[in-house]
Amino acid sequence: MTSILQKPRMAFDLSELPLHGKRSASLTWWGTLGFMLIEGSGFALVLAVYLYLASIATEWPLGAPPPDLLPGTIVTAVLLLSLIPNMLVSRWARQEDLRKVRIGMIVMALLGIAPLVPRAFEFSALNVLWDSNAYGSITWTLLGLHTTHLITDLIDTLVLSALMFTRHGRNPRRFGDVQDNAMYWNFVVLTWLPIYASLYGIPRL
């Protein structure tokens, strides 16, 4: 009963299994999911802080007009639009079509940069500074947190695009990475929607 090293009884042949799991059979997919859960909890909490502060305030927004709609709405539109090429890249990666994936990654890199431009104006459109009052603090934090996610995913996209043009590109693992990256971008876009609704909607209620 001690060691199985002495007389192994083979019961299970694994030799026909694929060398790399895809989607839910891949560890990185689960890892990405795990980190999305962590960050999702983080976003939910910061939103909760926003609602909490709004609920105890006598007026909301505090000492500032509501944020201007334009830059934030452009960001939202760009992000939503970017979902289409994002899904396509993901599909091409699943089909392991390297040429299309390369093109798609460049498009996605550009679409990662695009929202950062109106985002830069979004901060001043908040009409309040982070150190004016608690309202300013939480709106800047929400926006800052989301911008950090945009930037990290952009860097991830850039590095991955570069990789796809090297000899390492033609590899089922890389295609898996592209799909996970696309999944993460969906997450970044989807988390933006409740933030957008709160930042711009609640002050107008």
């Binding site: 305030a57 982070w130 608690a134 300013g136 603090s137």
Partner: peptide
């Protein structure tokens, strides 16, 4: 948020400025 309050002057926890 505590570090932000301490380092860059946000007001999350400052009741005088709407924090709690």
């Amino acid at each position: 948020s505590l570090i932000l309050d301490r380092l860059v002057g946000t007001h999350f926890y400052n009741p005088a400025e709407g924090g709690d």
